[in-house]
Nucleic acid binder design. Structure first.
Lengths: 146, 146
DNA sequence: GTTGAAATCGTTTGGAC
DNA sequence: GTCCAAACGATTTCAAC
């Protein structure tokens, strides 16, 4: 990727609501030039979208956990992501190397909600799990240094 | 939090570049009313900011890993987050319950960059680590169901 | 691929309910 | 707290380089 595009992506990763006017000033281009470049970055999927960074405690989801899962029966097909995608509590799903097959990042309102969610994950995806509760988040989702 | 505010946060988590005009239509309010509410949500820290969702492979950071760390000497002060915050490869830092003290989510360009980063984490924070490489990401950073 | 200008549209403010 | 309306600023398009 080109240097100018890198600067654009970095700036929008840090502040997704930057106006094209401000963005143009930051990268030293005209407004229409940055606008065109951003559109291309979006079309090529380099910028996949935009989102508000929300305070999960404030919106009633104060409990975050990592859930490492592996198939109960390793002989069966490994389609956990499709089977779990409909659960909105699962924010992210990573396929990983190692003993576990997937690591899930989940957000729930309470320990009992976590308990219910884990039961659903177990039965829906036919897996065993090892869950690590997050106590606090010193920092999260920092923009990448490109 | 109120129902209308929940709808606003949910909409902006899904699409952080929604115009106030579209947002007002979605939640059934006037433009100035949603505008005022969004400003208050930002001031109260419920909306902490906005960011572009970037394709890390496309921007030259195709390797993601979880790094679980624990102090080499449990008697020493536990200030890993401050000591690691300056490393831009570390996207997120979670304090967790269990054997490990922190779980880090890191993004690097290559295995050798990961090797260098792990060495830095070890020496800077005086910790041992257990690293889990991400093979693929079925889904990530989905907006929360509020 | 970049520019500048023009038309359109959204944002933002202030006052009234 | 919500709404309307007016002034302002940004977005988007287009022709030209």
């Amino acid at each position: 990727m080109e240097e100018t595009d890198q600067a654009i992506v970095a700036a929008l990763a840090k502040d997704g609501r930057l106006s094209y006017t401000d963005l143009a000033a930051q990268v030293g281009l005209s407004v229409s030039a940055v606008h065109q470049r951003v559109r291309r970055l979006e079309q090529r999927g380099i910028i996949a979208g935009y989102g508000a960074r929300v305070n999960f405690e404030a919106i009633g989801l104060p409990l975050t956990a990592f859930v490492a899962i592996r198939p109960f029966d390793p002989a069966q097909p490994d389609d956990a992501p499709e089977k779990l995608a409909h659960l909105p509590e699962i924010e992210s799903c990573y396929s990983v190397a190692g003993e576990d097959f997937y690591i899930l990042l989940v957000r729930v309102a309470s320990p009992s909600d976590l308990e219910r969610l884990l039961a659903e994950i177990r039965t829906k995806a036919n897996v065993t799990h090892r869950t690590t509760v997050v106590l606090s988040t010193p920092f999260e989702q920092r923009p990448p240094r490109i």
